[in-house]
Amino acid sequence: MKNIIFDFEYLAPKTLEEALTMLSQYNEEERKVIAGGQSLLILMRQKLITPQYLIDIKGLSDLEYIKFDKKEGLKIGALTIHRAVELSPIIQKEFSVLSEMEQNLSNVETRNWGTIGGDIAHADPCGDPAVVLIALNARLKLNGPSGERTMDAEDFTVDFFETALQPGELLTEIQVPVLPPNTGVKFTKYNQISGDLGLASVAMSITLDKDKKTCSDVRIALGGVAPAPIRAKKAEDILKGKKISDALLAEAGQAASEEASPTTDIQATDEYRRELVKVLVKRVGVEALARAKKA
């Protein structure tokens, strides 16, 4: 069995400030931050990542929280474990799509230790939380040497396993605005094996106008079909301002599949992944619409 066979210095800051100081002490190449480590430890075992300093922030309990307020919306500390997001009653009530996404994220063992912030910062294009958060129009709070800033979740992942984090910055909080009235959100991913990473995933948020007929706003996010999660803006444009029908959703699915830029690997071809996008957008749209009508 593979173990980590190189030595490193282990640093366990007790506060965010301490962590940020440590981050600034070492350059990007020599240090690595570990939260739940569900992906990182595997990469270290495979010698793909070999830091000299490992900064363990898993113990920063200050960053482990779920807060909700009718005005400010939802705030999730970056070190909140997946399982807490999944089981949170307030999330189940106000943002059930997040809880549903978590239910099918890997397995319960991973969700019991892995953190939602770690997942997002790992920036796997197949990661589920980022896709849902983009559909939810979420923002991410980053803390760094020059203080704190926020950015759209949509802009956070820039390429395969690459983020917009600047040297010395840490992802600290996920902020999800309150859903506008008459909004329905749905997420789905497809793979042959339950609980596996998705070959393709789609999250869609549909907001209907007052009469619940016309689509006043829509956000469609795709996962696993580009170097980073993306928004299918052309597909959104097809639905925006229209009365959504099955035919229109099919058209949006077609547009989204053209916006995707999937690759071929041993699991599936790019052609099939596009087909998945086409079908999943249609299916997710039907459910998001039904939810919007019920909302």
Binding site: G37, L54, E109, T110, N112, W113
Partner: peptide, 16 residues
């Protein structure tokens, strides 16, 4: 089980 929860012991640094 760590603090009563199922966790993969290969995916946790012992010091954690």
């Amino acid at each position: 089980n760590i603090d009563g929860k199922a966790v993969k012991s290969c995916s946790v640094l012992a010091l954690q």
